[in-house]
Nucleic acid binder design. Structure first.
Lengths: 327, 327
DNA sequence: ATTTAGCAATCGAGAAAATAGAGTGCTAGG
DNA sequence: CCTAGCACTCTATTTTCTCGATTGCTAAAT
């Protein structure tokens, strides 16, 4: 258990390090506290023994360890009010009634990435309630055809197919068959249904069914796939912990990797903080994220930055967005 | 006018520098040529006076200047055959008949970025022949509606709108009006037509027309806008000329900038090479690009890399792709 | 008229040494 | 329990030194 004084020393060190990114020495602390630097040093030593602080070398100031940050966010962090300008910028997005949810999320996280210099990720998991609403086809010319699929919740996906010897009649027949058989099916069950129920049927009624089957398979796969959007990736470059080209390469490739979906995805409804090794993205970053869920949509929004992150500010911003979109 | 020997020295220096990124000294050259290093040095001095070579400091080897690269690509470069593996990889894309043109372009430039370690840009300008084919709406629920627009050439765009007190009837009426009035209009004339011909009409027949008008305006804007796709951006990090964080920041922000569209766009049908200051993207890169045009689509494909670029290889690859997609 | 051998001069890159300064841990006294 | 004082440690920076690559020039050779 930490004493009151130890806590305030830890807090000061974390805050100072977040601000200046330089190891914090006893002198700086003792000026703010009413005691000598030797006293502070003794306390620091104890905090180090507890694993909350670290030194970069024998005679350097102290830097918070992951455990130190953890203690800070769990016990010490104070959530301040959002500043007026930030709220104002975000409100222009939330008040724009012409935007769809996905636009609102993208734009508001762009703003956040902008004002915080961190990177954001928006993960659209797509709700399980999402059902197939309608399939339609628009012939473009005698050879080409656009297949359009719309779901219950307003997701749209489309694909162009080239008909090699398939007549428009047959296409229409296929579309009708599929419409009759699977409208109303939840999107994540469509693949299976398409293969085991639809394929045999259209194989019977339609010549050249492979082309059509594949096209539909693609559109459905596309619409049921999760989407990832990484915003403000270049902000990575603004932080001195990522000033080494190899590290930059490393992080950029992780942000581009499809595995990011699994690594970011969050089902918990709180604002969750994963510091360093606690997250699956990269041991040198902190990920702050939360799940969002509206009647039409669900997913995860996340902010990624260095462990030396402005924790309270980011938590506040995420919380604000979450509340706004969940209404 | 350069002598035969000067040309082969310049050529060797460029090739060597492209390979090793280190200033090239006289010793290396004189081993390949049948003469002494002093002779080579004399020639080098002349090439430097002509502005074709540069030194990084008084006693360093030589590095090609922009003018030197220019002379190289104009007069010295030999176009070799593509190697079998590269052709094979690209063929798997071109032979996949299920892919649309845009997919083919993206995938083949992904392959090129991969094997060359350069960055590619695909610019889809959209053909002027692209005309509006059909507008349709799919009601998602009582409040929400998907507007889908398809063009002549198979481009699709869509947007969800929220109807605040607009009845489905009115929407259908609007859609019919628009369909009747502007189907067949080239997409780049749609905005104007929408504003000056359609707006007055729907304003007369439809209550709450603003919402609808704005939604349609958005979909049309979207479909007529040029698309940019930057592939292999992280490859920038692989070249030693971009090992400085500020330079990386600089280039990345230029690749993200919408101005890239204007800076890359190319109408000339050849494979064009813009070395350093010759291009509008960044003075430290070379851009090799060409226009492509098929019956359905047109735009620009470009490869961006350091000035010390593998010119012949990239020219060959671009040429190969251009020929493949133009059929 | 070229080409070449030889040589002093130049400069960068890297190692080694010197210096300054910030911060620590410990001890002894308040 | 706190603090003043001090020796010690380590980094970061600057300075100096050395090595080696490469050049330009000159004079002799072809």
């Amino acid at each position: 258990m930490l004493t009151k004084r130890q806590e305030s020393i830890l807090k000061m060190i974390v805050n100072e390090y977040i601000k200046l990114a330089k190891p914090v020495g006893s002198k700086l602390i003792c000026e703010k506290l009413n005691c000598s630097s030797a006293t502070v040093r003794n306390e620091m030593m104890q905090l180090e023994e507890l694993g909350l602080l670290e030194k970069t070398h024998t005679s350097s100031g102290r830097v918070p360890s992951e455990k130190g940050y953890r203690y800070y966010v769990d016990n010490l962090m104070e959530l301040k009010e959002l500043n007026g300008e930030e709220v104002y910028k975000l409100q222009t997005v939330f008040n724009n009634s012409q935007l769809e949810l996905s636009d609102v999320l993208n734009k508001s996280l762009e703003i956040i990435s902008d004002i915080t210099s961190y990177t954001s990720v928006i993960l659209d998991t797509k709700s399980h309630d999402n059902k197939l609403k309608e399939i339609s086809v628009v012939p473009v010319d005698s050879e080409i055809l656009v297949v359009i699929v719309v779901t219950d919740l307003g997701y749209v996906s489309h694909k162009n197919i080239e008909l090699h010897g398939v007549s428009l009649e047959e296409v229409k027949k296929t579309v009708k068959l599929i419409n009759d058989l699977i409208v109303g099916t939840p999107i994540d069950e469509i693949s299976a249904k398409l293969e085991f129920e639809i394929k045999p049927v259209i194989a019977k009624y339609v010549k050249q069914h492979e082309i059509l089957y594949n096209a539909f398979y693609d559109v459905f796969t596309d619409i049921s796939s999760k989407s990832v959007n990484v915003v403000g990736k270049n902000n990575i470059l603004k932080h001195q912990e990522f000033s080494n080209v190899d590290k930059i390469k490393d992080i950029f490739s992780k942000l581009d990797d499809r595995a990011l979906i699994e690594n970011i995805s969050e089902s918990n409804n709180d604002i969750n903080i994963y510091i360093g090794h606690e997250n699956k993205v990269d041991p040198d970053v902190t990920v702050i994220k939360t799940n969002y869920k509206t009647s039409k949509d669900e997913g995860t929004i996340a902010i990624i930055g260095p462990k030396r992150m402005d924790y309270d500010r980011v938590v506040n911003l995420l919380d604000y967005i979450k509340k706004q979109i969940e209404g």
